[in-house]
Design a binder for these strands. Structure first.
Lengths: 231, 231
DNA sequence: GAGTGGTCTAGACCACAAT
DNA sequence: TTGTGGTCTAGACCACTCC
């Protein structure tokens, strides 16, 4: 009696799928059938099967039955976390240095991406994040003043801009992309790059309320930084 | 009476969290309390609250209560899909060319990562994937023969190695990492890289059954390929 | 009409936490 | 001891699909 009944039922179903007894698209036994064979109430089977459906292992069709869902589409996920927590979890010491914190006129491309007029006033920050003293991220950010009017008054060596923005402007949606890029000239020294070392660039647009709240570019030394994870 | 009761309860709880009535760490009403105020059975409340806990909106502690979970940790996710589907979804034409498909002796590093003896026989394949004729991915793969004995007999211009392996060896777990790298010498021509163009490298280890089934390296031209998504 | 899943009820017993 | 969540039961009614 180690596990709960619904857990045993889930394990059983997953086992049949894993060992090939039930294949993609196959119908599995109905709730009453499973209830009889496991000697439990139908509600217990229902819970097990509903959870498997929520986890995309099964597909349910009212009136028709429960089917083995198509395999998870080889779609792996990467979690992008905030840099200070990431470093801390690795056991390293995080340190931030503010290179710039200012109001500027938006360049045409920044203005377009923020959804503002050309030359509109925006806040700009540039930070270096270090792990045990070595730079691992150059963070460049453009912020719509309306969503964070006090942005320029913050001490970003204590609370990262990311965390600050999450507090003052709940993020509704994020668009991002991940690219390999050569570093712009000025970044080589700041990131202590070796010659020709590429950068891993994460670029994010965060939406808050109706519009774009901020654009963030995170530049990482290719030889010292990688995104990892598992699924 | 549009939605089910448990759905209305979920919406109510999420609403209280969204409007700030209940904040991170706050205790929300107990199951019996919610059952009374919604005039439903406790099991109905239980379902709603369990689902919210599974979705990480709440944390439950037996004996103590149910609490608003910490906010979603600014963790964005990236989906890594198979290249042919990705190209197809963009409206492009996918084409694969097999550069190598052979049995080789594992190099020391490959052997270690596959969990095999040094010099063990492994299958190796190298493909170029093109989108509308232009190379977008060089796929290099080392496969444990035991999990896919017929690997060398496949026609990978029709079914990608990824999709083939998913069929013959259900994947239990995947480890991956994403890096920016300079391209190895031989890859420049194959990927039609311009001088100094960095590569976005995805590296994966897939586990099937007890051991490592395959190691995959996906090399992408930095100027023509990016991972994108939203959350 | 028979079978399926979707939902709900009004109880119950348990493990655990706070007191 | 009281209150919490975790689980389970043996029914029920409904909407839907398939024949």
């Amino acid at each position: 009696m180690g596990a709960a009944s619904y857990q045993r039922i889930k394990a059983h179903v997953l086992g049949r799928i894993a060992d090939g007894t039930w294949r993609e698209g196959d119908r599995i036994p109905s709730e009453p059938e499973l209830a009889r064979s496991f000697k439990v109430a139908r509600m217990t089977v229902n819970r097990a099967v509903c959870e498997l459906a929520a986890e995309h292992a099964l597909t349910r069709l009212r009136g028709s039955g429960t089917f083995v869902a198509p395999p998870r589409q080889e779609s792996t996920v990467v979690a992008l976390r905030s840099i200070d927590k990431e470093i801390h979890d690795r056991g390293g010491v995080h340190q931030a240095e503010v290179l710039a914190l200012e109001a500027v006129r938006a360049s045409p491309s920044v203005a377009i991406e923020l959804g503002l007029r050309r030359g509109a006033r925006v806040f700009h920050s540039r930070l270096i994040h270090r792990e045990d003293g070595r730079p691992v991220q150059l963070e460049e950010r453009w912020v719509t003043p309306a969503v964070a009017p006090d942005y320029l008054a913050q001490d970003f060596t204590r609370l990262t801009p990311s965390d600050y923005l999450v507090r003052v402007a709940p993020v509704a949606r994020v668009e991002y992309r991940i690219e390999a890029r050569s570093a712009p000239r000025g970044f080589k020294r700041a990131l202590e790059l070796v010659d020709g070392e590429p950068c891993l660039l994460l670029r994010r647009r965060s939406f808050s309320g109706g519009g774009v709240a901020a654009i963030t570019e995170l530049w990482h030394p290719g030889l010292r930084y990688r995104l990892t994870g598992q699924f």
